[in-house]
Design a protein around this nucleic acid. Sequence first.
DNA 1: CCTATCTGCAACCAATCGGTTGCTCTCACT
DNA 2: AGTGAGAGCAACCGATTGGTTGCAGATAGG
Lengths: 102, 102
Amino acid sequence: MSDLQPLFAALADPTRRAVFERLTAGGPASASRLAAELPVSRQAIAKHLATLDEAGLVERATVGREVQYSARPAALSDVTSWVDRVGTAWDTRLSRLKQTLE
Amino acid sequence: MSDLQPLFAALADPTRRAVFERLTAGGPASASRLAAELPVSRQAIAKHLATLDEAGLVERATVGREVQYSARPAALSDVTSWVDRVGTAWDTRLSRLKQTLE
DNA sequence: CCTATCTGCAACCAATCGGTTGCTCTCACT
DNA sequence: AGTGAGAGCAACCGATTGGTTGCAGATAGG
């Protein structure tokens, strides 16, 4: 189980989620391109992409002088499994409680 | 589809996740009780609980002079559905790409 | 070769955040 | 009635964050 912290932290920012969704739905793009599409400066986008990269949500691919970023939605499975784990704990508690009441 | 922002923001903090997990696995508890179990002051816990409450992750129940907080894991379904939505967008893109290549 | 474009680095700024301390208020209990 | 435990409010603090501007380094293309 990898470290959840960078992942949740990365997803907490709406701009970052927007960038990530843009990459999943619209395919790879460079930082400059994303900056042109979203109402933020290129450097801001670059920082967000660095954060997403550290969280494993994004992949870098240097092509000539450009850097193409593409989404790695597989990283989201860690989120899903955390939710599942918490949900299971909840269910366990519920059934224990039910058992106690009977 | 409710507002994702408070939800993701609430889950971004590790202490908050710890509080939430504690409530799902260990059942309802008051702020003071949680403060005794975790290495944080009561007021810090209270702030976290307020955040969790705004995100819909937690329920308040005033019992006498105490306030019992209990987990509402159902709120996590919004997270899951967001993940699903993004995943679907990704799959759609992939299949379109595949189709284009053929 | 020269220029325009894309990236990276650094400094800086205001706002937010997680956390603390200190005080007041309320309410259960003896 | 008095007291002690629990909750709420407010001010404050240092660190982090999201964002900006400005500048320097690389590289594709005329």
